[in-house]
């Protein structure tokens, strides 16, 4: 990992986990050997998907490394950010394709620290990805009419 990322690596646990998930390369040692599990006569390797083929190296131009908006909650991924807003993507647990949520910069601190409020904002404003390509009739049938009118943007007035 490039040295300039060290301070954030130390204080931002979510970002640390993200780096590890994207670039962490699995190796096996004497202390931590590769294991196999046999189930019904079939042998399964104990490995993390794709982790052996990752580079194990965080590139110097890693996106958002010096963000002003750290500690992105684990269930969200950052799509873009500027001085005014942070655009996030996430997955629901109901097998939908997920959704979009834009957080104004002034609300970011509350968004990352107040879990209850964050959930309220998600239910109130998050916009389903399906709205980008499915008909209103399909959306209403599957998710209900109110999903049609969600903007995907938390207004600053929620401060």
């Amino acid at each position: 990992m490039p040295a300039q990322f060290w301070p954030r690596f130390v204080f931002d646990e979510e970002w640390r986990n993200e780096l590890f998930a994207i670039y962490g390369k699995t190796v096996y040692t004497e202390k931590y050997p590769k294991k196999t599990v046999t189930l019904g006569g079939r042998v399964f390797n104990d490995k993390v998907q794709d982790s052996e083929s990752r580079t194990g190296i965080v590139p110097e131009d890693f996106k958002y490394a010096f963000t002003k908006f750290p500690d992105c909650p684990r269930d969200y991924s950052k799509h873009s950010e500027n001085d005014k807003e942070i655009k996030l993507g996430f997955y629901y647990l109901d097998l939908s394709d997920g959704g979009h949520l834009t957080v104004p910069a002034v609300l970011w601190d509350r968004f990352v620290t107040d879990k209850k409020w964050r959930s309220e904002m998600l239910l109130k404003y998050a916009r389903l990805v399906e709205l980008d390509y499915k008909s209103p009739e399909e959306i209403i049938k599957r998710f209900g009419e109110k999903e049609l009118y969600k903007t995907g943007i938390i207004p600053e007035s929620e401060y």
Partner: peptide
Amino acid sequence: MKKYRGCPEEYEVLKETHLSIELFRAAPPK
């Protein structure tokens, strides 16, 4: 003396230079 302080407890510093840090994180026990 270590250059990089505050290493998270789940990581171990394997090698460090003024440009980069090489880290190891053990798999969680199963």
